[in-house]
Design a binder for these strands. Structure first.
Lengths: 221, 221
DNA sequence: CTATTATCGTTATAATTTTCACGTTATATT
DNA sequence: AATATAACGTGAAAATTATAACGATAATAG
């Protein structure tokens, strides 16, 4: 009750609930598309099929306030979200695995919007070595060390097959990588100071299959 | 208190908490890799950095029971999860957008493990029409209708750029698609009977960036 | 065959997250 | 200038989810 507006101050890292972070990413996606100057919690909520109170609560975690009677000033709110996610700071990342997915990621033009730059792509398959993925030549893993140091790479992207994912990760960690962006369809074991974000792309379709079987819409199988 | 073992019976669709479903998918991924015959909640928990009670609670939602003193019989538990996700039933899906990502998905060999078959890939870019993505020829969108009907397609995969995602989705829904697997980096508006699973691949790296800035590990930027 | 023990399943408790309800404030109106 | 109003911000209540505690049971050992 005392000191009620200080909740959002940075005294010790605030922990965002996982679900809140996910929603904040959705607001970020939504607002980047918006053309108008202001938007209300109600409109955001409607577009995301959630409740306006939820939106206001989520935004209250940020270092940003809306205006009564008007709503949220979109570009300022986007700035606050950019701050939260660090999209204005650039991180150099590397991709391991120059298969279809690795190359697709290497070719993706949108990373710049998230403060990401792909500085190298690696593979040990002789067939792939020296071929191009976008602007980048596929390098052998023996160059890892050099690249990680030269570009101060913290994030490693795993696009190798499941079978080789764990040993690739072990290697990356040995070389100093701090965070793993994992596209392989396996669970990785890492030391607790290493971050892992799993992006098991294909498996994500199971949510749809599950729901299709259980909602009136999909019931007609 | 009365009728305590009926909780998991199918009387009206049970709603799984979103977080539980996500963990169940992780168990599925983990168990598929396991070589042994049995596994304990404790071991699952350790590998996923969660609590054993959580694992047992999650599994209690399933139509499956472990054995005291022994643990879970892995292949039976995988069966129960397969049942939950419908991986044994085949769904035919289509991909719209034959860019790098669309083609990478079309080439992905692992879908069979999830009961998914990609039956067609579409694009309206004349450059891409007629080119190949894996076994599939890229088709023009005018063939949508025919393909959806012929293969009874319920799931449409959006791999077009953000700008054209919404109108692509509108079209798919008009043609009878019931679920959208969205890889475009935008929020889609759909009628409430349509399912959407967002896979905003690039944006997912923001979680890592956010955490890197806030954990001892990553603090050295 | 009985006792012991490891591990599950489940109820009870605690923690977290969401929703509600309402007070506050900036803008618009008379 | 005072009043009305729309939308935010937030503390409190409700709902949900996670954790803990413990009783039940199957395997094992003696």
């Amino acid at each position: 009750m005392k000191n009620m507006s200080v909740k959002k101050k940075r005294n010790g890292p605030i922990m965002f609930p996982k679900a809140t972070l996910e929603r904040l990413k959705m607001y970020h996606a939504l607002l980047q598309e918006e053309k108008s100057e202001y938007i209300s919690s109600e409109e955001i909520a409607r577009k995301l099929s959630i409740k306006p109170e939820q939106v206001r609560k989520d935004i209250s975690y940020l270092d940003y306030s809306g205006k009564p009677k008007v709503g949220y000033h979109i570009s300022s709110l986007v700035d606050a979200l950019d701050e939260l996610f660090g999209t204005k700071l650039r991180d150099n990342i590397i991709i391991i695995g120059a298969g279809h997915l690795g190359k697709a990621l290497a070719n993706y033009k949108g990373f710049v919007n998230f403060g990401i730059r792909v500085v190298a792509i690696f593979d040990n398959d002789p067939e792939k070595l020296g071929t191009y993925a976008g602007e980048l030549v596929v390098l052998p893993l023996k160059d890892l060390d050099r690249v990680i140091r030269r570009f101060n790479v913290k994030i490693g992207t795993i696009c190798v097959p499941g079978e080789s994912a764990q040993k690739t990760v072990d290697l990356l960690i040995k070389k100093g990588i701090k965070a793993i962006w994992n596209f392989a369809p396996v669970i990785l074991e890492v030391p607790e100071n290493i971050l892992v974000e799993n992006m098991d792309i294909a498996r994500s379709v199971l949510t749809l299959k599950h729901l299709l079987d259980r909602t009136p819409t999909g019931k007609i199988r």
